[in-house]
Nucleic acid binder design. Structure first.
Length: 372
RNA sequence: CAAUUUUGCUUUUUUCC
């Protein structure tokens, strides 16, 4: 039983869910650990439906099972589902509370995140860190900074999250200052800092940091790749890509992104066609290549061919329409969009402003304030 | 002395500025 359980765990961690589930299904006897391990394996990889099926089939559920199911929802930002489950729980501990407000954070609802955090009966360092991370990821730099300074003590995760807060806003200098203050840096710290340089296109500093690192992983490589890509150094980016020990979809997306600037549309298309496992970001990136280079028709037909779309896809096509001066089309598209955010409004507004139609732009601005 | 079979926090790629 112990050995089978460990196998389920091992395959689960490796992401071989078929193997994990095979072991699980053929086990002669199962205990609560077996069920929780199988549930956790699905939960960690974001297989909500399968996780839910295991959860519903379980002969007995303990607090670990409830928390594992809750974290499955939380990870995907399914706040409504998480709340329903949370309310049904026979008992709740710090883990449940943290998972609940993280669900709100993942869905972008920072207000409710804080409300739930304030209602928590007890808080520990992980919950503090989770709130800090929520601020950091949603770009609330001031709140993150205040929280960081009001925290009773810090772990490396706290430092790393604070670094992320600067990274999200592109504050390279402050990030560097903080980075130098961090006492025991780990791989996450360095990869975060690499990503700051990467976004900023600071390839030289990225390379210097990279050379000091004793351990690197795929994410470090992806950071370097982004640095060369964003600095417009496509040749170097290609060189790095060629020298990488392995590639995941992320690496492919990064090299694809490097081609979106400066008219390398054909290269982008070729890379896209060669990606073994394309995800939504791959599609959005190619769309962005068309958008930036004014390939309106190609952008439009790619958009129509996409199996799934998110807000980024919509905004990307909107930017293509708005920037090329097709304002009627842009307005029409804008009005049909299922959801809008600040980026959508800004795109529309600047499109109208550039066209010189100040009346329309003003009307739009008023509408924007009304919605807000 | 302690010594992880299961649950919560941090990093990478795409849209405006």
């Amino acid at each position: 039983l112990l050995v089978s359980n460990m196998l389920v765990q091992m395959f689960g961690r490796l992401g071989c869910l078929d193997s994990a589930s095979h072991i699980f299904n053929t086990m002669p006897t199962k205990d609560s650990f077996s069920w929780n391990l199988m549930l956790g394996a699905y939960a960690q990889r974001g297989h909500i439906t399968q996780a839910r099926r295991i959860f519903d089939q379980m002969p007995t559920k303990d607090y670990v099972s409830w928390n594992a199911m809750l974290s499955a929802y939380s990870r995907d930002g399914l706040a409504q589902e998480a709340k329903v489950l949370f309310d049904k729980m026979p008992q709740r501990d710090i883990i449940s509370w943290t998972a609940l407000f993280t669900a709100y954070a993942q869905s972008g609802d920072i207000h409710t995140t804080k409300l739930v955090f304030d209602q928590m009966p007890q808080k520990d360092l992980v919950s503090w860190n989770a709130l800090l991370a929520a601020y950091a990821q949603n770009g609330h730099l001031e709140k993150a900074r205040d929280l960081f300074h009001s925290m009773p003590y810090w772990s490396l995760v706290s430092w790393n999250s604070m670094l992320t807060a600067y990274a999200q806003r592109g504050h390279v200098h402050e990030a560097t200052v903080l980075f130098d203050k961090i006492p025991d840096k780990d791989l996450v710290t360095c990869n975060t800092m690499l990503s700051v340089y990467g976004r900023h296109g600071d390839a030289a500093k990225a390379k210097t940091l990279y050379d000091t690192m004793s351990y690197v992983d795929l994410l470090s490589w992806d950071g370097i790749l982004a640095a060369y890509g964003n600095s417009g150094n496509l040749d170097q980016a290609r060189l790095v890509f060629g020298n990488m020990p392995e590639w995941d979809t992320l690496s492919w997306n990064a090299i694809l992104a490097a081609c979106t600037d400066n008219g390398f549309v054909e290269d982008a298309k070729r890379i896209f066609d060669g990606i073994p496992r394309r995800d939504l970001v791959s599609w959005n990136t190619l769309l962005s290549a068309y958008a930036r280079n004014n390939y309106i028709h190609k952008a439009r037909s790619l958009f129509d061919a996409m199996a799934e779309r998110d807000l980024v896809s919509y905004n990307t096509l909107l930017s293509a329409l708005a920037k090329s001066g097709n304002l009627d089309q842009a307005v029409g598209f804008f009005e049909q969009m299922p959801v809008l955010d600040m980026v959508s409004w800004n795109l529309m507004l600047s499109g109208l402003a550039k066209s010189g139609d100040l009346e329309k732009a003003e009307a739009f601005f008023k509408k924007m304030q009304d919605v807000n």
